[in-house]
Design a binder for these strands. Structure first.
Lengths: 215, 215
DNA sequence: TATGTAATGATGCATTTGCAACATTTTACG
DNA sequence: CGTAAAATGTTGCAAATGCATCATTACATA
């Protein structure tokens, strides 16, 4: 995956951050990153450490929406950062975060600075990747039944790796979250698929026993 | 909304398209645009005319996913253009489409050409906007019940315009599609909300009678 | 303006799903 | 290695939803 400072030297990185009037903050483990951000319209960069985007629903259930590692960015996917459902939490001590005002990025006229142009190009590529991811998820979630969601997910994953195997990225619980369905209902449907001989499940590996043109 | 050729003169536009080795095609009304695209990894621009991204489900039901007008782009949201569910159809005679290979955009090293840099910056801004839109929709669709989806949608729309009124962008049928729910089930739930005195519906205008901090 | 087409509103019914609850297994970590 | 926490598997049941169908209304356009 493209990283935000790709093709930008350490020296130019310093110049870039100065040009964009960025601000750096350091967070300790389990502290809120969003609470220190005043503006709604920023892009954040994890300069060091690790953080997570967390969604808390009205029942108090917390879900990890995204994991943010070094040079990952945030602030592009959440339409309004000022949203009581979301927070970004540092998950390591001394997690360093760079905050840049979105308008500073857009209104900068230094078109002759190659490091600035590289930065925008990296941003573009990252967003392009994210957009495809989101769209993939939308394609799955908009299917009507749990069975169709599972089969669509399997189909996409198997084609991605050109194999009839699908490996869970995390746990079944996380998959249910991703598909936005109830976990036990998902387990129930997985059992149906197993019983009908369509899939085989062994640990985190799901084997597709039907032909879905995954070649 | 940002357009793809913002801040690029007509002369520079010609230079840009040459630099990126773009190809132009003309389509007549109701013809498929995707069928002429060989590669999976392109960005398309509607240079003239009007087209629609259409999704056909396995029952043969067609849904308009997106409307493409002059200077709108496509190819960024569909993870795999080679997908039997989707097609892009010209909806006017003489609809002109510019196709650019994604790799040509990324691998171009002409960092000193300001029109190229503007182009990338425009792409970035367009994708940023689209990403927020997709995320907004995901936030709505991942709600468990139809009621919660409707209320989340109303909440977002009312806050966007700072008013207790929400105006339908199209029809109720289209809204049901957007929310990925059954239309009649949506009507049923809207009736419930009306009966409980939470909303008032008059034509395409929905009034929120509860306080949702839309100020 | 007339007429066909699309949108809306309504409702019975079968199915799907979420929820709650619990037992069992796996995993993480002091 | 032992223990607590997390994940998994299962199931009954109630609630939510999709589907089919039909009547009515709004809309577009010839």
């Amino acid at each position: 995956m493209i990283k935000i400072f790709n093709q930008i030297s350490a020296q130019n990185k310093v110049k870039l951050l100065r040009l964009l009037k960025s601000h750096s903050f350091t967070f300790q483990n389990e502290t809120s990153i969003l609470s220190t951000v005043k503006s709604d319209n920023i892009i954040g960069i994890i300069a060091q450490g690790y953080a997570e985007i967390i969604r808390t629903d009205h029942n108090g259930n917390e879900t990890v929406i995204e994991q943010l590692e070094k040079e990952d960015i945030f602030g592009t996917e959440i339409s309004s950062l000022k949203n009581d459902e979301y927070d970004i939490i540092a998950k390591e001590n001394n997690t360093e975060v760079i905050i840049i005002d979105y308008n500073n990025i857009i209104n900068c006229k230094e078109n002759n600075k190659s490091f600035y142009n590289e930065f925008i190009k990296n941003l573009f590529q990252i967003l392009n990747f994210k957009l495809k991811e989101k769209n993939e998820r939308l394609n799955i979630i908009t299917k009507k039944t749990i069975r169709d969601k599972l089969l669509e997910y399997f189909s996409i994953e198997s084609k991605k790796h050109g194999s009839s195997y699908v490996y869970l990225f995390s746990t079944f619980t996380a998959l249910a979250d991703f598909l936005a369905i109830d976990r036990s209902a998902m387990t129930r449907e997985l059992k149906n698929l197993k019983d009908e001989g369509l899939i085989e499940v062994k640990g985190k590996r799901i084997t597709l026993l039907y032909n879905d043109n995954w070649i």
